[in-house]
């Protein structure tokens, strides 16, 4: 499955030129119309968010659809001065990067052994780990919450990083095992002849060859943790540790009436991922297609 999707993901970048040039103008016209309509619908919320964030509340009350009568940045100023968006982004960054790092290290070590060594219980471990991808996170939340309050992990970075790392790891193991199995044995044997240790092989031969799956893991997993609300909401009750998504949900509840302010907050909150998407679009699309198995 992952091999399929990795192969598919390479295909997203095919060249220009249709498979069939023989199309009636009616067909071309309808296809073009579908694409334009789809693009407009995809963009409407972003349009609304941006134009509303630049209006005064009075302007918004008179006109909810059009361009601002006068562009004002008051809402942005207020969001930046009075709210902790940067603190929340920092927390989200620490937690996302931390969980992806922990998950990738644990998964790479295990996937290496599973893909390249013989030991008892190997297939069983892979089967169990893979099937855990199906367990919805909300199922683990109640017992983990009780456990975390017992052992004082509630409201700590380490606690949530552990949970997210756990949730990400089955997919990471699955993807890396599939990829590690495709690395030619000759390369590893050459390494062994040169006297490399098993860990040396992983570090100096396997990982340098694993760029594509590692990029996929990085993107799919960062996006998952950065965008998650449920776990951050429950396991980080401390205000100073709020992630961006929790911050967003608290912030919006306070400004139900001031829509320009609310929209300025959302524009600011969506900026980091949008910028990353525009800069690394190709990797995003490839990575997410390869990561489709995660669902």
């Amino acid at each position: 499955m992952a091999q399929d999707t990795i192969r598919l993901s390479q295909q997203v970048e095919a060249g220009e030129g249709a498979p069939s040039q023989h199309r009636s103008w009616m067909t071309v016209f309808s296809l073009q119309a579908v694409l334009i309509l789809a693009a407009v619908i995809a963009l409407v919320p972003a349009y609304f968010m941006l134009i509303s964030s630049l209006k005064t509340p009075e302007n918004y009350n008179l006109d909810r659809i059009g361009f601002p009568a006068q562009i004002v940045f008051d809402s942005y100023a207020e969001v930046l001065l009075k709210h902790d968006f940067f603190l929340w982004m920092g927390n989200s960054a620490i937690i996302s990067i931390g969980s992806v790092a922990v998950s990738t290290i644990i998964a790479a070590l295990a996937a290496y052994a599973i893909a390249r060594m013989v030991f008892r219980g190997r297939e069983f471990l892979l089967a169990i780990s893979t099937s855990l991808m199906a367990v919805p996170p909300v199922v683990m939340v109640v017992p983990l919450f009780v456990l975390f309050s017992q052992i004082d992990l509630l409201g700590t970075y380490q606690g949530v990083i552990l949970i997210y790392a756990g949730l990400l790891t089955p997919f990471s193991v699955y993807l890396l095992v599939t990829f590690f199995r495709t690395i030619p044995t000759e390369l590893l044997e050459a390494g062994l002849i040169d006297g490399a240790s098993p860990i040396g092989l992983l570090w100096r031969i396997m990982l340098p060859l694993s760029g594509p799956p590692l990029v996929t893991l990085f993107i799919v997993n960062i996006l998952y943790v950065w965008n998650d609300l449920l776990i951050a909401l429950l396991f980080l009750p401390n205000e100073r540790l709020r992630t961006l998504m929790v911050g967003v949900s608290v912030f919006q509840g306070r400004y139900l009436q001031n829509i320009p302010l609310s929209m300025a907050g959302m524009a600011l909150a969506s900026a980091p991922m949008l910028i990353v998407y525009i800069l690394f679009q190709r990797y995003f699309i490839r990575g997410l297609v390869a990561g489709a198995v995660k669902g």
Partner: peptide
């Protein structure tokens, strides 16, 4: 023993985040 050492962190993490919570559930 090397393969077991390599998979030990994975087993520990899965037990902690999946097995124990599902049992407790």
């Amino acid at each position: 023993f090397t393969p077991y050492l390599l998979v030990a962190p994975l087993i520990a993490l899965l037990l902690f985040i999946f097995a124990y919570p599902i049992y407790k559930l």
